[in-house]
């Protein structure tokens, strides 16, 4: 909630100061952080709750994006909501397929198989020219709803879409949080810790694995729709294994089950470069530095801080409390 207020605040400041601060590149940076965070929330169900490692994220996001691009471009009569629902439905169908695969293939093999699946999507995006426009990438000319339906100017539509994005992000955050606290989340956690023990307690592996994948692919599909709607361009190169790895990194850095952590993780992985480092010449000329740092952070987090940022914050809090007690 607080994040939502802050993000909307940023946009309002931009409107009030007439674009002097924050700059629109910074706002776009935050928008992409939100889009990736949405995908990340879906991924927490897999990694954080169900303990399933999947590298297929890029394919699911790409599919959502390309469905949006295709429908908005070639079927102008179809309302945006229908496009959104269609993208979600396709994602869900796909999630069901992968969910069933996950029942047959477990653990680290699942990562390999989903990696193969992601490669299939990449090949599709690259070669199915009628649907995706191939390596040149697909684009849409106008912001959906605000520009097409309400007739706003491009700048206003962008601002309005930004606010819509904040609302969606915060809404999904609350949904994810509540689902995680519900019996569904607890059942998934039980499954993560020991699938045999969970089964013995009457938890259906079929149901919850499937559900984890369904949720995750639906979020990813929605993320793809938002990606296309806000950034209005996508190319197959966006959806390589690096995308899936970055999402994994974002979720890991955040602390795999903590939603504010996931947001911060997305911010570190996807946001720092466009928001701050774009203006520093050194980083603009050497973009590899930040990626290497992300790689290092992944290794360090996995090896020494499996709880991620969340654990760091908690540890700092605990040490403050300790110091407090010692003083009093």
């Amino acid at each position: 909630m607080l994040i939502g207020v802050l993000l909307i605040g940023l946009q309002l400041t931009a409107i009030l100061t007439d674009g002097a601060w924050p700059k629109s590149s910074m706002l776009n940076g935050f928008a992409s952080v939100m889009i990736y965070a949405i995908v990340g929330y879906g991924f927490t169900f897999l990694l954080g709750y169900a303990g399933l490692a999947s590298l297929g994220t890029a394919g699911f996001v790409g599919l959502g994006a390309y469905i949006t691009a295709y429908a908005l471009k070639n079927m102008p009569g179809v309302p945006y909501v229908v496009v959104l629902l269609a993208a979600l439905l396709v994602s869900l169908a796909l999630g069901a397929i992968v969910g069933f695969i996950s029942l047959r293939i477990e653990g680290i093999f699942l990562a390999i198989v989903t990696l193969g699946l992601s490669e299939i999507f990449y090949q599709l995006f690259n070669n199915w020219l009628d649907f995706t426009n191939g390596p040149n990438g697909a684009s849409i000319s106008k912001y959906p709803i605000f520009q097409t339906l309400l007739g706003m100017s491009r700048q206003d539509a962008q601002k309005a879409f930004y606010i819509l994005l904040v609302i969606i992000t915060v809404g999904l955050m609350m949904l994810t949080y509540n689902l995680g606290k519900s019996s569904t989340g607890r059942a998934m956690l039980a499954m993560k810790n020991s699938s045999s023990a969970a089964q013995a307690m009457g938890i259906s592996l079929l149901k919850y694995r499937l559900l984890a994948f369904l949720l995750s692919t639906a979020y990813a599909g929605l993320g793809g729709v938002m990606f296309m709607s806000y950034l209005r361009f996508s190319a197959p190169q966006n959806y390589t294994i690096m995308f899936s790895l970055n999402i994994l990194a974002a979720v890991l850095i955040g602390g795999s089950r903590n939603l504010i952590g996931t947001f911060m993780g997305s911010f570190i992985v996807f946001g720092i470069t466009p928001i701050f480092l774009q203006d520093i010449p050194f980083f603009r000329e050497n973009p590899w530095v930040i990626n290497v740092t992300i790689g290092l952070i992944i290794i360090l987090v996995v090896m020494f801080y499996p709880g991620g940022l969340t654990q760091l914050v908690n540890n700092v809090k605990a040490s403050f409390k300790k110091a407090d007690r010692r003083l009093s």
Partner: peptide, 18 residues
């Protein structure tokens, strides 16, 4: 094992860029 897998992904990310 999944954790180790992620470590090698981190190594991959570093090598890709370096």
């Amino acid at each position: 094992p999944s954790g180790k897998q992620m470590i090698t992904m981190g190594v991959m990310m570093i090598l890709v860029n370096v």
